[in-house]
Design a binder for these strands. Structure first.
Length: 889
DNA sequence: ATAATGACTTGTGTTCAGAGCG
DNA sequence: CGCTCTGAACACAAGTCATTAT
C-alpha cells in the first residue's frame, strides 16, 4: 500500500489529482432483470382508500371538476396536457387545472392557503385553456407509428408547453413538430447558429474546447473527436445508440474495467500528484475538479464565502490553458468521475474518522405539572418530557396518534406506577417556556459569541467531515449521529410520536478500508458494533433505525463527492438513453392498451401513466407506514374516469403530498381504467395484477437498465431543455434567468414538487401591495406636478408641507416613467411570489434536471452559471461543468 | 414467486447565516 | 447599522430498486 501513503500526503495538502490514467468511463450497468417485491399485500384497502377522501374533505376542497377553474393552482394541471394528442390540441390537455392544494393531513397545513394564488393561476390557465376538455378526446391512435405528430409520443413536457400556447391545434402541431425534430435530430440549423454565436462570446466556451474535449471523450465515448468546440455538427453524434450498445456490453465486461481503471488510478494518482505542480496545477486540472477543490479548501479554511467566486474564477481562467492537456487524458482523476466498476466495487481505499455523537443530555430541572402540581422526574424521564414540551406549538400535538405513541413510550420510562398516568393531566408549559427562553438567550448572544461557538463546534467536527476515498479527500454527508427525539413522520404516520432513542456506538457498524486505522470510538468505554471492509458499498457507517429496526440509517459521502457524482451522471445518461427508446416504448404500450392479456394491459396503462404524468412507481407499503400510493399502488378510488375520456386523479403520494390532476387520455386507456375498476371497491388496487417489480422487469426488457423512475428524470430534463429552447430569447440577464425559472417551474409542476406556504407569505404580499399604493400616490403627485410644470406653475407641496424643487417637465416625465417601472417590478414580484408559493423549484434542480442542460444553456447565453447553481449545486455538479455549449439532452 | 433485506435516491421542513433594506 | 427576510445548509423521512433468502 504505498499508495496509501501517497494518498495521505495528498490529502493533507489537498493536492490535485491529476493522474495519468486514461479515463475510462463506463457505466456499470447492473441491470439484472428481476426483482421482487411483494405484490400481494393489499391490506389497507378499505381503510386506506378511505383515508384519502376523508382527509381531503375536511379541507373543503373537493376535487370536483369545477375546481379546475376555480382552483387554480397551476401545478397539477400542466401535467395533464400530455395526453392529448396533437390534433386534439394541447389545450385540452389542461382540462383541469387541478388545484395543487395538498391535502395535508400532515402537520403543515398546506391546504389552507391556496386561495391567493389560485387566482393567478386561474388567469394563467385561463388563457391557456379555455378550451376545455372537449377536444381532448382525440384518441387518435396513431400515436406511435407516426410518432411525430402525435403528441402522445412526446413526453409530457412537450405537451405542456403546447398547452400553454393558446393557439389551437395547428399551432400546437407546429410546436410539436419543432420540438420533435429537435429531439430526434440533434442539430437542426437552429442549434448551429446558436452554437456559433454564443461560442465566440461566452467565456466558457474556450475552456471547453480544449479541455472538455478530452474529458468528454473519456466520459462519453463517442464524442471525443467531434466534440471540438462548438462545431455544429458535432452534436449529432451525441446520439445515444453507441452508448447503449456499450452499456449493454459493459454489463458483462465489468470486472476488467475495474481493474484497469480504478486500480491504476488510485495507485498512480498519488504518486503523480505529489508536489510537482504547485501553483500551476490548477490549470491542468479539469474544471470540475478545480471547482471542487476550491470549494473544499475554502470551506475547510473557513472562508466559505469566497469559495464560490474562486471556483468560478478558476474556471474561467483555466479555460485557456486547458489545451495543453489535451493529449493526455490525465484528468481522469478522482475528483473527476471515475468509472464505476462493473463488478460493484465502489472504492479501493477508504479512510475516515467515523461519526460524531450528540452530547449527552443535560438535565434542566424544570418541572412539569401533573394535575397542577410539580413532578420530579429523573433525567431520563425529563429528557423525554422535554422532547414533547418543545413540540407544544406544532401540529403534532393535535394528533391523537402522536400523543398516544408518545405516552406509550414515555410510560415505559416513567414506570408502571409513576404518578403520571395520563397525558391529559400533564402540563408541559414550564419546560416549553424554559426552552423558549433558552432559544431567546441564544438569539441574543452577540455575533462574536456566536462565532466563537461556531468555531468551536467546527473544530470538534472537523475530523469527521472528511473521508479519503482512493486517495482523494471527500466531504462526508451526514457524519452526525441522529439525536434522540420524537419521531416526526409525515402525513398520518402510525408511528408518529414514538421515542427515537439515543444511538450508541454499539449500534453502529463502521465500513472502512482494510489496513487503515479504525476510527476510535468517541465514547469512552464503548465500542462499535462491528467494523466491515466492504468496498462494494459506499456507506461509511450505519445503524438500525430505532423506529423501524429493520431499516437502516446510513452515513454516506456528500453530494459533491465523485462517488455520488459518478452515479448522478450515470443516472442522467440512462435517462438520455431512454430518449432513443421512448418512441418504441410508447408505441408498444399503446398497442397493449387493448391486449387480451390483463397483465399486459395493466402494465401498458401503468407505464403510460408513469410516462405521461411522471408518477412514481409505487411500491407496496406496510401497515405501519403512512398510507400513500404511487402508480402501481393506486386504488380504485384514486382514479375517477369521467366520460368521455377524462381521468381524475386524487391521491396522497410520497410524503403524503396530495396529487390532484385531471387528464384527458386516449380512449383505450380510459376504457382500460374503467375495466380495471369494475367489480372492485374504492380501496382495492387499481392494478391488481401488477407491482413495481413486475413493472420494472418489463421495462428492463424494453431498455437495459430501465426502471420506472427513469421516466421522471427523462421527462423532467426533457421538459427543461425543451422549455428553455422555446422560451429563451435574448434580452437582459435577468430575463434569461426568469426564463430559466419558468422552465424550472414547469418541471416542478409536472413532478408535483410542492412546499408549504410560508407563514409570512400573506404579510409579504400585503406589504408589497402597500408599496405599490405608495408608489401610485407618488405617481399621481408627479402627474399633477407635470401638468403644472407644463403651465409654468411650481409643484404642489409635498405631504410634509415642504416645497419641492422645481423640475422641468422632462425631468418629471422621467420620474413618472421610473415610478411606473418600479410599480411594474413590484407587481411582477407579487405575481411570481404567488405563483411559486406552493411550488418547490429546488427538488427538481437537485434531483431531476441534468445539470449539463443548464450549463450548456448558460454557456450559450452567457449567463454565469452561478446565477443558476448555488455553491452546493456547483460542487455537486462539478462533473457537468465542462460540457460543450452545444450539449443537448 | 414472494418476502426480506439492503443500499441508495428523492423530498420536505427547519435552522441558520448573511444579503439586502430602511 | 441594526433588522428583517431569504435562500442555503442541514436534518431526516420516505421513496425506489436490486439482491438475497425462503
Amino acid at each position: 500500500m504505498a499508495v496509501e501513503a501517497f494518498a495521505k500526503t495528498n490529502l493533507m495538502e489537498d493536492i490535485d489529482d491529476d493522474d495519468d490514467m486514461p479515463l475510462v468511463f463506463k457505466r456499470s450497468s447492473t441491470t439484472s432483470k428481476q426483482n421482487q417485491s411483494n405484490s400481494s399485500s393489499q391490506k389497507q384497502d378499505g381503510r386506506s382508500g378511505r383515508q384519502v377522501p376523508d382527509v381531503r374533505s375536511p379541507n373543503g376542497q373537493s376535487s370536483s371538476t369545477h375546481k379546475v377553474k376555480t382552483a387554480a393552482s397551476s401545478k397539477a394541471s400542466p401535467a395533464v396536457s400530455p395526453l392529448t394528442n396533437p390534433k386534439a390540441s394541447p389545450l385540452s390537455s389542461r382540462t383541469s387545472p387541478a388545484p395543487n392544494s395538498r391535502t395535508s393531513p400532515a402537520p403543515n397545513s398546506r391546504t389552507s392557503s391556496s386561495a391567493g394564488n389560485q387566482a393567478k393561476n386561474v388567469n394563467q390557465q385561463s388563457n391557456i385553456a379555455p378550451k376545455e376538455s372537449k377536444q381532448v378526446v382525440e384518441p387518435k391512435s396513431e400515436p406511435n407509428d407516426e410518432a411525430e405528430d402525435s403528441e402522445d409520443d412526446k413526453p409530457l413536457s412537450a405537451r405542456v408547453p403546447s398547452g400553454l400556447s393558446k393557439s389551437n391545434s395547428s399551432h400546437a402541431n407546429k410546436v410539436l413538430g419543432a420540438s420533435t425534430s429537435v429531439q430526434k435530430s440533434r442539430p437542426p440549423k437552429k442549434e448551429d447558429s446558436d452554437d456559433e454565436i454564443p461560442l465566440a462570446s461566452s467565456f466558457q466556451m474556450k475552456s471547453n474546447a480544449g479541455a472538455s474535449t478530452s474529458k468528454f471523450s473519456s466520459s462519453e465515448e463517442v464524442k471525443p473527436k467531434i466534440r471540438q468546440n462548438g462545431l455544429p455538427s458535432a452534436t449529432v453524434l451525441s446520439k445515444r445508440p453507441p452508448g447503449e450498445v456499450k452499456s449493454a456490453a459493459q454489463a458483462s465486461v465489468k470486472k476488467p474495467r475495474l481493474s484497469d481503471a480504478s486500480t491504476p488510478v488510485s495507485s498512480k494518482q498519488p504518486s503523480v500528484k505529489t508536489e510537482k505542480k504547485t501553483e500551476d496545477d490548477d490549470d491542468d486540472v479539469p474544471l470540475s475538479q478545480r471547482i471542487k477543490k476550491a470549494v473544499t479548501s475554502a470551506s475547510a479554511s473557513a472562508s466559505k464565502a469566497s469559495s464560490v467566486k474562486k471556483a468560478t474564477k478558476v474556471v474561467s481562467s483555466s479555460m485557456k490553458k486547458t489545451k495543453k492537456k489535451l493529449k493526455k487524458p490525465k484528468y481522469s482523476k478522482s475528483s473527476k468521475l471515475q468509472p464505476s466498476s462493473g463488478d460493484g466495487q465502489k472504492w479501493t481505499t477508504l479512510e475516515h474518522n467515523g461519526v460524531i455523537f450528540p452530547p449527552p443530555y443535560k438535565p434542566h430541572g424544570v418541572k412539569i405539572l401533573y394535575k397542577g402540581k410539580p413532578v420530579d422526574l429523573t433525567p431520563e424521564q425529563e429528557e423525554v418530557a422535554t422532547m414533547y414540551a418543545v413540540m407544544l406549538d406544532t401540529e403534532y400535538l393535535t394528533k391523537q396518534q402522536f400523543k398516544e405513541n408518545f405516552m406509550n413510550d414515555w410510560r415505559k420510562i416513567l414506570g408502571k406506577n409513576h404518578v403520571i398516568q395520563k397525558l391529559e393531566e400533564c402540563d408541559f408549559t414550564p419546560i416549553y417556556e424554559w426552552h423558549q427562553s433558552e432559544k431567546e438567550k441564544k438569539k441574543q448572544m452577540s455575533s462574536e459569541e456566536k462565532k466563537t461557538l461556531r468555531e468551536e463546534k467546527l473544530k470538534q467536527e472537523e475530523k469527521y467531515m472528511w473521508a479519503i476515498v482512493d486517495g482523494v479527500k471527500e466531504k462526508v454527508g451526514n457524519f452526525r449521529v441522529e439525536p434522540p427525539g420524537l419521531f416526526r413522520g409525515r402525513g398520518e404516520h402510525p408511528k408518529m410520536g414514538k421515542l427515537k432513542r439515543r444511538i450508541r456506538p454499539n449500534d453502529i457498524t463502521i465500513n472502512i478500508g482494510k489496513g487503515v486505522p479504525v476510527p476510535e470510538c468517541p465514547i469512552p468505554g464503548q465500542r462499535w458494533k462491528e467494523v466491515r471492509h466492504d468496498n462494494t458499498v459506499t456507506w461509511l457507517a450505519f445503524w438500525n433505525d430505532p423506529i423501524n429496526p429493520r431499516e437502516f440509517k446510513y452515513v454516506f459521502l456528500a453530494a459533491s463527492s465523485s462517488l455520488k457524482g459518478q452515479s448522478d451522471k450515470e443516472k442522467y445518461e440512462k435517462a438520455r438513453r431512454l430518449k432513443d427508446y421512448i418512441e418504441g416504448i410508447r408505441s408498444a404500450y399503446t398497442k397493449d392498451f387493448t391486449s387480451k392479456d390483463p397483465v399486459k394491459r395493466q402494465i401498458a396503462v401503468a407505464t403510460y401513466l408513469i410516462d405521461k404524468l411522471a408518477l412514481r412507481a409505487g411500491n407496496e407499503k406496510d401497515d405501519d407506514e403512512a398510507d400513500t400510493v404511487g402508480c402501481c399502488t393506486l386504488k380504485v378510488e384514486n382514479v375517477e374516469p369521467v366520460p368521455p375520456n377524462i381521468l381524475k386523479f386524487d391521491f396522497l403520494g410520497k410524503d403524503s403530498i396530495r396529487y390532484q390532476n385531471e387528464v384527458a387520455v386516449y380512449e383505450p386507456v380510459f376504457k382500460a381504467i374503467q375495466q380495471f375498476r369494475s367489480g372492485k371497491k374504492g380501496g382495492d388496487d387499481l392494478f391488481d395484477k401488477l407491482d413495481t417489480s413486475k413493472l420494472n422487469a418489463h421495462l428492463k426488457e424494453l431498455m437495459p437498465g430501465l426502471t420506472a423512475k427513469v421516466f421522471r428524470t427523462y421527462n423532467a430534463s426533457f421538459t427543461l431543455e425543451q422549455q428553455l429552447t422555446k422560451l429563451t430569447q435574448g434580452g437582459e440577464l435577468a430575463d434569461k434567468v426568469a426564463v430559466y425559472n419558468v422552465a424550472n417551474k414547469e418541471v416542478a409542476i409536472i413532478c408535483n414538487h410542492q412546499r408549504t406556504v410560508s407563514k409570512s407569505h400573506s404579510v409579504q404580499i400585503s406589504r408589497l401591495n402597500e408599496k405599490i399604493d405608495e408608489l401610485k400616490a407618488v405617481l399621481e403627485e408627479f402627474k399633477v406636478d407635470l401638468a403644472r410644470a407644463k403651465k409654468g406653475k411650481p409643484p404642489v407641496k409635498g405631504a410634509d408641507g415642504k416645497a419641492k424643487r422645481n423640475l422641468t417637465p422632462e425631468a418629471l416625465q422621467k420620474k413618472i416613467d421610473q415610478t411606473n417601472v418600479k410599480i411594474d417590478n413590484i407587481e411582477r414580484q407579487i405575481e411570481t411570489k404567488e405563483e411559486l408559493k406552493t411550488v418547490a423549484l429546488g427538488t427538481s434542480k437537485i434531483n431531476y434536471l441534468d445539470p449539463r442542460i443548464t450549463v450548456a444553456w448558460c454557456k450559450r447565453h452567457e449567463v454565469p452559471i452561478e446565477k443558476m447553481f448555488n455553491k452546493s449545486l456547483l460542487a455537486k455538479f462539478a462533473w457537468a461543468m465542462d460540457v460543450e455549449p452545444s450539449f443537448t439532452f
